[in-house]
Simulated scan of single mutants.
Amino acid sequence: MSKLYALSYVSPIGEIEIQGTHEAVYSIMFSNRNEPSTRVIEEAPVQVLKECASQLDEYFKGERFEFSFPYAYEGTDFQQKVWNALVNVGYGKTTAYKDIALAIGNEKAIRAVGSANGKNKLSIVIPCHRIIGSNQKLTGYAGGLWRKEWLLQHEKRCLGS
């Protein structure tokens, strides 16, 4: 892989660190710091990272429902199948882990789908926050359940306006 660069973006629900190369974004993760980082990550971030931050900003303002910047992910074939299926869960919608397992043709892989979901490094863009339990309850989210709930409510509010 090419040299990785990073850029911090301060969202309404905390700082997000975006990492990538000149070609694509590889990671969009909540940093879980209470305040923005003071460290200089890159004086002149690469264009793809700036575009990602710009599109995230539009998402949080309720102006963007899909992402178009280049991104890439690395994982097992199974994980990639799961992540590809997650992209098909529409903005403001939710689906269950079981439904994703069915969508990838492996109905017994519910727990494995959950595990793959938890390894997603492209938060919000690969919308793992839209996956809930079969009982319609919120379950695990790397950024914290409160963020998952916020993101789901945000999308529903934006669709309603």
Rank of each mutant, 00 (worst) to 15 (best):
K3P: 01
L7G: 09
V10E: 10
P12S: 11
I13Y: 14
E15V: 02
Q19S: 03
G20M: 02
G20I: 01
E23T: 13
E23V: 05
I28E: 07
N34G: 10
R39D: 13
I41Q: 09
A44K: 12
Q47H: 03
Q47P: 06
V48A: 00
C52W: 06
A53N: 11
Y59H: 10
F60K: 07
K61M: 12
E63F: 06
E63R: 12
F67W: 06
P70L: 07
Q80K: 14
Q80S: 06
V82C: 10
N84E: 10
V87K: 15
V89P: 08
T95P: 00
T95H: 00
K98N: 12
K98Q: 15
I100D: 02
I104P: 03
G105N: 12
G105A: 11
N106A: 15
K108A: 07
R111G: 04
A112W: 05
V113G: 01
G114H: 06
A116M: 05
N117P: 00
N117M: 05
K119Y: 08
N120E: 07
K121S: 09
S123Q: 14
S123N: 15
I124E: 12
C128H: 13
C128F: 09
I131T: 04
G133S: 12
N135Y: 06
Q136T: 14
L138S: 03
G140N: 12
A142S: 15
A142H: 03
G143C: 04
G144M: 05
G144R: 11
L145Y: 07
W146M: 09
K148G: 01
W150T: 01
H154W: 09
H154D: 07
C158S: 14
